[in-house]
Design a protein around this nucleic acid. Sequence first.
DNA 1: GATGCATTGTTGAACTTTCAAATCACACTA
DNA 2: TAGTGTGATTTGAAAGTTCAACAATGCATC
Lengths: 167, 167
Amino acid sequence: MAEQTSEPLWLTDEQLRDWQSLMALLMTMPPALDAQLKRDSGLNSFEYHVLAGLNDHPSGRLGMSELSAYTRGSPSRLSHAVGRLERAGWIERRSGEARCVNAHITEAGRRKLVEAAPAHVREVRRLVVDRLTPEQLTALGAAARLVVAQIEPTWVDAIAHRTGGDC
Amino acid sequence: MAEQTSEPLWLTDEQLRDWQSLMALLMTMPPALDAQLKRDSGLNSFEYHVLAGLNDHPSGRLGMSELSAYTRGSPSRLSHAVGRLERAGWIERRSGEARCVNAHITEAGRRKLVEAAPAHVREVRRLVVDRLTPEQLTALGAAARLVVAQIEPTWVDAIAHRTGGDC
DNA sequence: GATGCATTGTTGAACTTTCAAATCACACTA
DNA sequence: TAGTGTGATTTGAAAGTTCAACAATGCATC
């Protein structure tokens, strides 16, 4: 009932249109990527991301906490997912120093990823990269970074420096 | 093993960077919006969208199929969600002509939405609209539309014309 | 006007994610 | 060195989504 009229409450037509377009993107794109991955390799986006994160690190391993930050999954979500991947033989858990547990990608895991990646990249191209001019893609990326920076201020470093490691 | 080298397989550094930025957006934004809605009104994004869809229509009702298209939810997902909203008293189901079932928003449902909307819009402003220059937002919206058009060619009309109705 | 068929919507089970509590290992203190 | 605290990870149950099968209804065709 009591509303603050001091600030403009609603959005202009253009803002609304662009916002709805963004919402449409948020609603359609993850399912599209998930569908491709699931169909072609049986992985979901999160699991793919976990494997990719491990594979990208020279050591092929990462502490659960670092991996959790990298994938932006809650510790619990990660733990469940790693459990599945471990059961499939693509990851091994080994406890490291301190209280840490390291997730190691196995050879089978690397093979799985190498097998899954090309089709995934192809899909990313088809849906996004090839759809936009270089300038549009640049603008999209820049805008995305600004919004993400607002939501999650710590992230910019995280990816930029790739500073994480095992424990 | 056998790979097609005929097309450029991987992405350039800039493309990769922008792609990762977009992925970060896809991963952080829905949870952020969900969290705000859940915290402030107990609804999740999908349920909010369902109520908003009904409320926006002059008649306050919509066939399940139309609503399913509008919210981009599978029939099953919608059916479950409407079940919850009905149990909460915010929606009523009435069977219309043909095989159709109409979802009607109730007075309580409208109140709920009116109560939830301002904070949600405020959050959208805070995370997106206020973070970008008008040009950036325009560019973001335009790029999003292009990608969505590729994923879901039918959509452009759907929102543009608001042609759907009950049955 | 009966039969087959397509469309619409629901249901229940399987799976994934979330949420809160429990576990475990180490560090610190008395 | 027993006791307490803190941080990392796991666990199991609740909530939500997906998936596949199942009504229910109208339409076409014979």
